[in-house]
Design a binder for these strands. Structure first.
Length: 182
DNA sequence: AAGCGGATGTCCT
DNA sequence: GGACATCCGCTTA
């Protein structure tokens, strides 16, 4: 079980370290296979201009959830590190509560269940109500990987600033990535 | 296989 | 008003 102190790491260390960790929300979830790091001096980060009503949770860490609405439609989940930093959960390998995830997503293809940040939010039932909640208690459970997996890095997806920074991390060769790494 | 347009909350200019 | 850490379905090849 990861607790607040485990999230008190520079976000460029935390984001790859979370690859292979298990993330459950009310017993539903799986193994994290894709993350992205964001921080306060990062032009692509929601925290770039300091705290606002939306991003307050990014400044409430380490060890809380930051949930935001993407494009007015999707709920996306970050695990917050030190002040102003966060790790966007972009994809999981589904392992627990698969039936529930299938129901929420309205499709059964395991490769498309949790491969994308909006999909993860929908599959895990994430809403605004999770924003700011600590990660070391209900409904969350985060467990570090038993053995450190092989992690690959590359440019982040779906952003227009700082596009060349290799701050996207993935489990090498996983079929559950939102996009392959080059 | 790839490219578009639609849905539409929150922030910033 | 415009951009955005997105996804889906419909269109064209």
């Amino acid at each position: 079980m990861m607790t607040a102190a485990d999230f008190d790491l520079p976000v460029l260390e935390l984001a790859p370290l979370l690859i292979g960790a298990t993330l459950l929300v009310d017993e539903v979830g799986g193994v994290i296979v894709e993350t992205e790091a964001y921080h306060h001096e990062d032009p692509a980060s929601h925290s770039r201009s300091g705290p606002t009503a939306r991003n307050a949770s990014m400044f409430a860490g380490p060890g809380v959830a930051y949930v935001y609405r993407s494009y007015g439609i999707h709920w996306c989940l970050n695990l917050v590190g030190p002040r102003g930093t966060g790790v966007l959960i972009r994809a999981l390998r589904p392992t627990a509560g698969v039936d529930q995830m299938i129901q929420r997503r309205g499709l059964a293809d395991p490769r498309r269940l949790c491969s994308g940040p909006g999909r993860v939010g929908q599959a895990l039932g994430i809403t605004r109500s999770h924003d700011g909640l600590p990660l070391d208690g209900r409904p969350f459970q985060v467990d570090a990987p038993a053995t450190l997996p092989e992690v690959v890095a590359g440019p982040r997806i779906g952003i227009s600033k700082a596009v060349d920074q290799p701050w996207r991390f993935g489990l090498k060769g996983s079929p559950f990535l939102s996009k392959p790494f080059r």
